[in-house]
Structure formats: structure tokens, C-alpha cells
Design a protein around this nucleic acid. Structure first.
Lengths: 217, 217
DNA sequence: AGGCCGAGTTGTACGTTGTAAAACTACGCA
DNA sequence: TGCGTAGTTTTACAACGTACAACTCGGCCT
């Protein structure tokens, strides 16, 4: 424990270790549980010790988002298979976010202009360039897909700080309690949706976007 | 001021008045400024007085979201013009959110299963039903569009609690500072995007979705 | 070998938050 | 006239991020 160490004694803290513990803690107990004090005790250290490795809490949160962004490389693709490539990219990204549902609000709330995110975008624009899309058009497409990812992750996880202590997740369950007499169509839709896999809605929107994207001029 | 009134004296507070002031305050100074104490002094009242009209802060925030949801009715449409109807709906919704950029994180972070939101959805499902779409398919489409709205509003406003004290808003400006040597395509795309209107990216994604939605079976 | 300097850690403190509990005032109704 | 109750203030508490200062030690310089 933190209290059992004398005052200036080293604890072997490192930036990456703090970051890992922070992600784990947020995954386990939600963003609301991620306070500096709490993270400190999790590491056997006082809260203020963390400030030697991150200038403030925001920097730590930024680092967490960046860690997600660089969790896996983006696929490369070319002239003939750009739709497949984009589909791959989008699904992979969603999987990563879905693995850390509690971090989704974080991703949503930070501009994401960090190194890793920019690198990812640049690579995508490069692939799309070889597919024949000029940068502006390519960026439009990537933005649309990123939005889809983030929104679906948010809905699927029940955005918010609550630890989601019980009750199954997923946006279908949120509509399950709709009063059928007042909203018959909604209730019917919710019932029908409940019989599908959790990503059916995502796949529908993804397919719509990909077929809606015009081919390069 | 709150201090100038004696202890149990009525202040004429009402739920709607509190709600309006809360929205105005958040619009003016950002979500972070919306504390119960601050909202109190804004109304010439102590913070705890508000708890007689809203059980807690979350309820107030929910009410704010609900107010946005019911700000304008959804368009009705039928068999031949469902794409136009959906485009109308989506644009109107975006306009409403864009008028209150600071509230976007709120909309994003609440499940939105309140009365007004459900009513809105039910109406859309009804129109889409006459257009030939079964409820489940219709709901998929509405979800996709809602996601687009919310994400674009978030990006366009720079999600976060910051009061955005200066500097032009818009997602293009966020990419303006990208180092051109490290990310040439991104920089080029940002430059090209800056010459368009702020909703060009939104319109692109909207068009893609609408043309990507398959016609009813 | 001796000294010391700075990185890393703790202790303490301040201001701010949401809100529980209780005290109080004044109005409406019996 | 009296009382209940709706509405407001007062006070209080626990938790938050973090500024600041005290402290301890490993490693470098002479």
C-alpha cells in the first residue's frame, strides 16, 4: 500500500504501467472510478506520484485514447478492393472499441489529433489515393466511417460513466422496455432486432455507406 | 441575489424556467459551467432550491436533452418521397443540435429513451411504414441517420466541456494545424475541405447513406 | 570517498463539486 | 386560529483535481 512506504522512496512507477492500470481500471469499473487517488492506490502509490509521469489527468486520458488508436495497424489496399479494405478497417476499429466499452466516451470527447490517429488517417488516405480518390474525397469517406464506428460503439455500450453493474448491454435491450401500446412500431422493431446479432445494425449502416460511396471519378 | 432573500421566502421558481436558464447557461459558457450552484445564482437562488423541481442534476440534464428532442416535429412523408423526407428530418435535426453545440455531449451520453424521443421515432417508423419498410428495417435506417447527426454535431462543435473561448469552430479548423511534411495527404485534404461550407462533409455522408439504403422489398 | 542534485514520492491544503439533512418562512385550507 | 406543506436557505460531508512543500534516495562529479 501507499501508506506503507516512506516518504521519498521510489515505487518503480513508469508511464506505460500507469497507462495500463488506468485502462484496466476503467474497463473494470467504469470511467467514474478512474480518479487519480483511486488509480494511485491501485498502483500502491499516492495520487500525486502520478503527476510526475503525466502533467495532469487530461494528458493521461489522451494517452489512453492514443493507446486505443494505435492498437492495431490499418489495412493497406488498392485500386480494386477499396470497399473491402474500408470494411475491414471499420470492423477492426469497432472491435477494438467494443473491447473497451467504457473508454468510448473518452474517444468521443477528445479531438483525436494525436500522433497515432493522424498516422492512421494518413495511411488510409494513401490507400484511397491509389484507389483513385483525391484526398478531400477520401477524408470525407474516412470521417463517415469513423463516425459510424464511434456511434455504434457508444450505443452498444450505453455511453456514460455508469459501471453498468447488471443487465445485458446493447442498444436493443435499451428499447426492450418500450411500452408496446404507446409505440407499437417501435416495440415491434425492438422485438425483431433482438433476434439478430448485436452488430446487425452496424453492418446495415456500414453496407449502406459503402454502396453509397460513389466510385472514383 | 440569493443572499438577499430570507430563509423560506418563495422565489417563484418553476421547472421550465430552470430548464431554460440551464440551457442558456450551457449555451453561453459551456457544460462545465453548469453547476447547481452556478445555475442557482443565475436564477437568484441557492443551489438547493433547484432540488425541489428536479430530483437531481441528472434529471435536469435529461430534461435538457428532451427539450432538444421535442424542439420541432418530424416531417411526415409517404411512398414516393421517403428519401426526401429522411433528408429533411436529418438536416432539421442537425440544425437544432448545431444551434446548441455545447449540449451535444449531453445528447451523446444519454440513452434518450424519454417520451419525446420515442414519439419522434415512432412517427418516423410510421412514415417509413407507409413507404413500405417493415419496422425493423426502418429502425435501422433511423439509427444510422441519428448517428450521423450526432457525430457531425459533435465534430462540428469540438465536443468537450471547454467554453471554446476563441478560435473558429468546425472540424476543418482542427485539422488545419496538421504538419504538412509528416502528413501531406491529410494536410492537402484539410486545405481542400476548408474551401467548402461547413456542412459539406455532413451532406456527403448523408447522400451516401440515402443512396445506400436499399428500396423497400 | 564525499558531497550534492534532482527525480520520484508523500503529506497537506485549497477550492469546487453534487447533494443529504435540517431549519425556517409563508401561504392555503380547515 | 391553527396547522400542514411547498419552497427556500443553511450547514455539512465526501470526493474530486491539483498546487506546493517536505522528504529520501540513486547516481554523478570531484
Amino acid at each position: 500500500m501507499a501508506a506503507s512506504r516512506r516518504r521519498g522512496q521510489h515505487a518503480g512507477l513508469t508511464g506505460p504501467a500507469i497507462l495500463d492500470t488506468a485502462v484496466a481500471l476503467a474497463d473494470r469499473e467504469g470511467l467514474a472510478a478512474l480518479s487519480m487517488r483511486r488509480l494511485g492506490t491501485e498502483l500502491g502509490v499516492e495520487a500525486m506520484a502520478l503527476y510526475h509521469h503525466f502533467p495532469n489527468k487530461d494528458a493521461l486520458l489522451d494517452a489512453m485514447v492514443e493507446a486505443l488508436a494505435t492498437a492495431s495497424p490499418v489495412p493497406r489496399f488498392g485500386r480494386t478492393d477499396w470497399r473491402d479494405g474500408l470494411r475491414d478497417y471499420t470492423r477492426t476499429r469497432l472491435d477494438i472499441l467494443a473491447a473497451h466499452p467504457n473508454l468510448v466516451p473518452l474517444v468521443l470527447s477528445r479531438p483525436a489529433t494525436t500522433e497515432g490517429t493522424l498516422r492512421m488517417m494518413e495511411d488510409l488516405l494513401d490507400s484511397l489515393g491509389t484507389a483513385g480518390f483525391p484526398p478531400r474525397r477520401a477524408l470525407d469517406m474516412v470521417y463517415a466511417l469513423n463516425g459510424l464506428i464511434v456511434v455504434h460503439a457508444a450505443l452498444g455500450a450505453g455511453v456514460g460513466d455508469a459501471p453498468a453493474p447488471h443487465g445485458e448491454p446493447g442498444q436493443t435491450s435499451r428499447l426492450a422496455a418500450v411500452p408496446a401500446e404507446a409505440y407499437p412500431l417501435l416495440a415491434e422493431a425492438a422485438r425483431a432486432s433482438a433476434r439478430r446479432g448485436p452488430t446487425a445494425r452496424f453492418e446495415f449502416a456500414l453496407a449502406a455507406l459503402l454502396t453509397g460511396f460513389p466510385d472514383p471519378a
